[in-house]
Write a protein that binds this DNA or RNA. Structure first.
Lengths: 232, 232
DNA sequence: ACTCGCACTTGAACATGTTCAAAGACTGTC
DNA sequence: GACAGTCTTTGAACATGTTCAAGTGCGAGT
């Protein structure tokens, strides 16, 4: 169905095959127009015209308008990783690391809030390849989960042995929740989302610490069993 | 922008004003086609043709194709209320009541799983009037929250005084979470969602009970303060 | 130099959600 | 019963995402 002729370059652009430049041109033009006019207001015709190519050409590189969104995700993910580096290198307390990475994620997304919000709906559709849970998104998802794995491995906090392997994914899930809130956040500068992060991180921190207590073991196990059951 | 000439009848259809029958005809035809073919595969032209009216006529009653979804919500909400009645009349333990109402909600939605899933994305868009958080949805939302209020008022369980007023909304939020999981649930008959409900209700139950303990008061308050801050 | 194959490009044609000016139908008024 | 006003209905026209058959041009093989 979708053309997959040109595999996306993983990091920089070292070997530009023939059409690779066109691909990048279209992608960047689209991103610019999305930012300038919003997603819905940016027509494929406008993207093509602005990029100086034919409409069909855009479809040669991107299966649909939605696929341009995926490009945005991928880009954001890489930026998120980069933006998290300083905190991860500096902090060693679990809470500080987690807060840092969550804030970094929102930092990266903030300039796009107005238009990102309008198209995050596409991600909510289960059948869409753009869903963060879909097989097609497994690449970026794994990368994101790995980032939260790093939050954990670099931290000094002790974590319950049974909880530990599940935790990165759970933290990523919490991050998805933060983004869901952020998308709906109408407060100026999305300050509410910042408050959410600052409020919720200590709770998670405390919860993780408590999970090691003998008295709470049954509860911890109960929760973990449930999660294991629920995920595919 | 949108025509609001004919206010929707709240419960039955006692006084059918002139065009009311047409409205119902179009609505029911749309629901049937959604169920038969799915949301995306059902064109406005098909709805109009099948209902025996002109395309523009459908737009006279429903501002957009998406607005037909809202009709579905409203309908489901009423059914959910009705389906919850038996449990609420029978049970008096908090956990049993909550589980009953959650299961009832999924019961009502189950026949529509295949097509409901594909359009729940519209609800995820913050700017959409279809968002469960939007002002336009406040009617159904209030009704739904009231339903969870009833879960609480009819129960024998003691609840922390500070938590009590917030709890119905929190339970509704949890219900939204269950639906989000349900939408993505690919297990046959969505049995995983049932497991989610059965697994999560005891946890909520225990949490609510624990909230009254003096030792946990600070945490309870902290959580409640955060929630108060976060909601508009 | 020629030509063959394939990556790339084109733009008209198509499908479908949405709009709108005009026409039709009903209700109350005189 | 004619008239005015409003509610309802119509269908053609429009906007935009998407498809596709037909080109275009570059590089390899001869």
């Amino acid at each position: 169905m979708t053309e997959q002729t040109a595999p996306p370059t993983s990091a920089g652009e070292p070997t530009t095959t023939r059409g690779e430049q066109t691909r990048l041109l279209i992608r960047d033009t689209a991103m610019r127009l999305f930012r300038e006019r919003g997603y819905a207001q940016t027509t494929m015709r406008a993207i093509a015209q602005e990029a100086g190519v034919a409409v069909g050409n855009a479809y040669y590189y991107f299966g649909s308008k939605d696929h341009l969104i995926q490009e945005f995700y991928a880009q954001s993910q890489v930026e998120h990783h980069a933006a998290s580096r300083p905190v991860l290198d500096r902090e060693d307390a679990f809470g500080a690391r987690l807060a840092g990475v969550l804030h970094a994620g929102i930092d990266v997304l903030t300039p796009s809030h107005s238009f990102a919000a309008t198209f995050f709906k596409t991600a909510a559709e289960p059948t869409s390849p753009l869903s963060p849970f879909s097989a097609e998104s497994s690449g970026p998802r794994e990368a994101a989960i790995a980032l939260f794995g790093e939050v954990l491995t670099g931290s000094t906090t002790k974590v319950d042995a049974e909880l530990r392997p599940q935790l990165p994914e759970l933290l990523w899930l919490a991050y998805m929740g933060v983004i869901l809130y952020w998308v709906h956040d109408r407060s100026p500068g999305q300050t509410k989302t910042r408050q959410l992060i600052d409020g919720v991180v200590p709770l998670i921190d405390r919860l993780v610490a408590l999970s090691r207590l003998r008295v709470l073991r049954p509860v911890t196990r109960q929760v973990l069993d449930l999660i294991r059951t629920l995920r595919h």
